[in-house]
């Protein structure tokens, strides 16, 4: 009973955690490391929302107030060859709510590994046309509880993705890029063996919906390729899953959709070769079973040659 009635409280729980999407900027960008080049990044993201979509109904919840999700993400990318990179990341996440009496949580989320290749790269007119392909996976690392919306650190399931990213960049530095990825998700394992979605399930396994992410970016290299700025529009569509019912808590297998706009900059100070400073802003525009989050990211990058003949600064296709 008791819990049962948690009525209220519960309402709050909705999960908004999208491992591949929130943090994996690099796998979807248009940059490649040359052979032997390695790049470290350390990023901090501050993400908050005070409204969310319960199914398609946008609402607030006094028992959540504002949900804050802070993420610290070390990431590295390495050039196996000029045309084949590997990328890895391991975010550490902390969540807390300003309202209600539920404990926030913190811990390592999902380790991500990606292999990114240049499938095509040729001059076209006064620019370069490229196509990048990425295979990736994320796997939960710690024993975090995914059945703890909206605080859960992640979706708690393995996620395999395949991504294609075409880009056309003019020699003068302006570029457009598209990206689309299909994500195949394995089951999440929760800590109870009965739950109700649109029907009862007698299992601790949760069949997670697959998803498609997509995006379009307009970018520009300024000041002799020392400042990269981008504006983007992207989104996520889940295939399958179910809506949060009225005043119910969120659940890992909810159908999570959103569209989002973002701004991004990456500055490479010429007086400090190898270093870069990253800033990013993302705003969810529309959604379903997600919070309308506003996220700011700041971070630094450092790139250097481990071997090979690569340059020491960014490599632009």
């Amino acid at each position: 009973m008791k819990n049962i009635l948690h009525i209220s409280i519960l309402a709050y729980l909705l999960a908004l955690t999208l491992p591949d999407e929130v943090l994996a900027q690099t796998p979807s960008d248009g940059l490649m490391m040359d052979r032997g080049q390695i790049c470290f990044a350390a990023l901090y993201t501050h993400d908050t929302w005070d409204e969310y979509w319960e199914g398609t109904l946008k609402r607030t919840n006094g028992n959540i107030g504002t949900l804050t999700r802070q993420t610290v993400m070390p990431m590295f990318a390495f050039g196996l060859t000029d045309r084949l990179n590997v990328i890895a990341s391991l975010p550490w996440v902390r969540t807390q709510a300003s309202g209600g009496q539920m404990r926030g949580v913190s811990g390592f989320q999902d380790i991500g590994l990606w292999v990114k290749g240049t499938a095509y790269n040729n001059t076209l007119g006064s620019g370069t046309l490229s196509l990048f392909g990425v295979l990736g996976m994320t796997l939960p690392t710690s024993d975090y509880l995914e059945d703890y919306a909206p605080f859960s650190l992640g979706l708690g399931c393995p996620d395999f993705s395949i991504r294609a990213t075409p880009q056309y960049q003019l020699d003068m530095g302006l570029y457009v890029r598209g990206t689309a990825a299909y994500m195949i998700r394995g089951n999440a394992t929760i800590e109870r063996d009965y739950y109700y979605t649109t029907h009862g399930v007698y299992s601790d396994q949760v069949d997670m919906p697959n998803a498609m992410s997509y995006g379009a970016t307009l970018g520009y290299w300024l000041f002799d390729y020392t400042l990269q700025v981008e504006a983007s529009y992207d989104g996520l569509n889940s295939y399958g899953g179910h809506d949060i019912r009225r005043q119910d808590a969120g659940f890992p297998s909810n159908k999570m959709d959103f569209t989002r706009a973002g701004l991004f900059m990456h500055y490479f100070p010429s007086f400090f070769p190898g270093f870069g400073i990253v800033g990013q802003y993302n705003q969810i525009l529309t959604g379903r079973n997600v919070g309308q989050s506003t996220a700011f990211t700041a971070g630094i990058t450092y790139q250097f040659g481990l071997w090979g003949a690569g340059e020491t600064v960014n490599t632009v296709n």
């Binding site: 009973m1 819990n3 059945d147 800590e191 109870r192 009965y194 808590a249």
Partner: peptide, 25 residues
């Protein structure tokens, strides 16, 4: 983690069949 699992396993809260439902099972 064991305590957390026990709390969740028996939670039988909103959107579930309640503790009486668990015992019926």
């Amino acid at each position: 983690n064991d305590q957390r699992k026990i709390a969740n396993f028996w939670s039988d809260g909103l959107g579930t069949y309640t503790p009486p439902g668990h015992w019926n099972r």
